[in-house]
Design a protein around this nucleic acid. Sequence first.
DNA 1: ATCGGGTAAGTAACCAGTTAGTTATATCGT
DNA 2: ACGATATAACTAACTGGTTACTTACCCGAT
Lengths: 185, 185
Amino acid sequence: MAVRDAEATKARILAASVAEFAHHGLAGARIDRIASAANANKRMIYVYFGNKDKLFDAVIDAAIGEMFEAVPFTPRDLPEYGAKLFDFLVAHPVEIRIDAWRRLERPVHTALEEEIFVQKVAALDAVRSTTQGALSSADLLVAVLAAAWSWVTVPTSLAVLATEDVALQRQQVVSSIEALCRSQG
Amino acid sequence: MAVRDAEATKARILAASVAEFAHHGLAGARIDRIASAANANKRMIYVYFGNKDKLFDAVIDAAIGEMFEAVPFTPRDLPEYGAKLFDFLVAHPVEIRIDAWRRLERPVHTALEEEIFVQKVAALDAVRSTTQGALSSADLLVAVLAAAWSWVTVPTSLAVLATEDVALQRQQVVSSIEALCRSQG
DNA sequence: ATCGGGTAAGTAACCAGTTAGTTATATCGT
DNA sequence: ACGATATAACTAACTGGTTACTTACCCGAT
């Protein structure tokens, strides 16, 4: 490791920021903590990222962008998609928290983010027979996502009563989406 | 209205706190803003509620307690329960935000909160035939709640593509839960 | 020598919580 | 009924610590 390496310093700051914002949110995050966790000088955060808000935006871009792009969309096999999305969520609790903070503290979505679902909806439309009275593909996706996210969004006071077996949770996500698909085209 | 009315002042502080915490969360909320919005002296907040954390707890108790108690649980008709829960969520966006903040900033659940779901799970157990290989009642409830919450938890970038007709959203919540019940006992 | 990467030491504003009081109202002896 | 007194309700101004952001400077490599 070079004594002076701008890219490495920037990367350390970003990694520390992801952890800090995931834990405390935008309002609760502390620039001083990020600097010391990144073994970087506070000033460099401002050189590389501008200010706290822009740093949070950089964290969002780094953490959320992959969120729905990392899981390949399989419109012909929605239960499989839900299972893979579930796997991703289980493996990425930090990204889940950052997404939750973003919804509360930065309620905006870029045109790029919209594109993620535009493509999925179009792909789903292409493979579905246009049955009368059926849900729109976007609405079906809403239901599929809700099932895949169900173990993330469940209130903790119910979670302690339900199964904690991740494999079983995954199976139930699959079953729920299968039931949805059976009642749809 | 009397010039001095402890109960009324306390109620104004609590109401202002609900709005402030719903908007900004625990870390982002400002005691000074609450005091001025409540037309109360800042000191009275400390007299009546102790400190910021305890005030947030009071807000949680006021807002969350009703959340799952306000909707009567009908174990024999889960689609109806989901629809009523959906209606409640649509009518109470402030409570939804406070719940979201609480999950992130106060990840604890009291014994009382647990009781809410203990009762529901027991009631659901009592009316279900114990079919082999079926989900536990708690796990079924997880799936039902996910469906009822689906329009709250959907990413905004998908929400803009899906229907914005609340009546239709409600119908789809009902359909999803019916599909779940059909595949279960 | 100069320029990008890095640092120590600020600064001004902010904010949760406190101090030291004032004013309204309830209680009580007469 | 009524003034004296206690107490509850309320207030303005302050404090000490924190926090986002800056200034002025140093160092190493080319």
